[in-house]
Computed example of a mutant assay.
Amino acid sequence: MSRWCASAAKANRDTATPTTQVAVSQGTATHQAFYLGYNGPKKSWQFMTTTTEAATTTYPVALGGPAPAAGTWTHLTGVYDADTEVMSLYVNGALTGTADRNATPVYNASGPPTVGANITVGSTSPYDPLTGAVSDVRTFPSALTTAQVKAVYANS
């Protein structure tokens, strides 16, 4: 993905298990360049990135939205804007969280986007699977405005 990016997906969790569950991600050799999904321990949707390929990376995360009920479709959009270095999470078209500035995101991921789990490059073992369904996944080569996110949500 480029330094300006956005990803959107609809997620429907079958169960309310308190685990991390990923709707869409893109792997690097060591971590994930980004992922959109559910943070079970925090009972919140999240858009997370990494700052480096090193083992000591930090994970800036934008959290937001209510804990979803099992069997409910939720539209997620994660946006990273390199001009402001801000990560934003939109849930059902509304801005629900932003992250501290991430000046060094790992957006040169060598892995393809992955739907329904995390996976690192070269691995055949996905982890953090979403127990449910994912639909209408979209990636964009530039950051979306709030109005654009609302339009994507309205047309999904």
Rank of each mutant, 00 (worst) to 15 (best):
Y127F: 11
S156H: 07
M87S: 10
A99N: 05
V22W: 11
A82Q: 15
G64H: 11
A70T: 13
G40D: 07
R101V: 12
M87D: 11
V91D: 11
K42W: 02
V91R: 09
T58G: 07
P66F: 01
T84G: 14
T28C: 10
S156M: 15
A147F: 05
T131G: 06
A70M: 03
D81H: 10
A143C: 06
K10M: 04
A147W: 03
M48W: 02
Y127M: 00
T19W: 03
M48F: 04
M48P: 00
R101P: 12
N92M: 02
V61R: 09
V86R: 03
T74C: 05
K43N: 06
N118F: 00
T50I: 12
Y59E: 12
A23L: 12
L95V: 08
V91F: 14
K150V: 11
V137C: 12
R13M: 14
T120S: 10
H75T: 05
N102T: 08
G64M: 04
K10P: 00
A55N: 10
N155M: 02
S142A: 12
Q21D: 06
P105V: 13
N92Q: 13
Y35V: 08
G116K: 15
S125A: 13
T15K: 09
D81Q: 06
T58S: 13
D128Y: 09
P113G: 01
A133W: 03
S156F: 06
W73A: 12
Y127L: 00
K10H: 06
A70I: 03
N102S: 11
N155W: 05
Q46W: 07
G40I: 03
V86T: 07
A54C: 01
G37C: 04
S88D: 01
F34N: 02
N92L: 03
A62P: 03
T77L: 14
W4L: 14
A62Q: 00
G71V: 00
T146V: 00
G27D: 13
P41W: 05
A151Y: 02
A69E: 14
T72M: 07
A8T: 04
G27R: 12
S123R: 04
D81I: 14
Q26E: 07
F140C: 06
K43H: 08
G40E: 09
T56K: 01
L76T: 01
P126L: 04
A6E: 07
T77D: 15
A16E: 11
T131I: 02
I119R: 12
A109N: 01
A82F: 11
A103T: 15
F47T: 10
P126M: 10
S88E: 00
S7K: 08
Y38M: 05
G132H: 00
Q46P: 03
F34C: 03
P126C: 01
V121F: 15
P129N: 09
A9Q: 07
T20Q: 09
A23F: 13
A103C: 00
S123H: 12
A94V: 13
A23C: 13
S135I: 02
H31D: 03
T57Y: 02
N118I: 07
N108H: 14
G97Y: 15
G71K: 02
Y127V: 05
P18A: 10
T52D: 14
R138V: 05
Y80D: 15
S2P: 14
G78V: 08
T49Y: 10
T146W: 03
N12C: 11
G132S: 00
T17W: 01
A9H: 03
A103Y: 11
P105K: 04
D128C: 02
L76V: 02
P113T: 13
N155R: 04
L36A: 06
P60H: 06
S135D: 15
D83T: 08
T120Q: 15
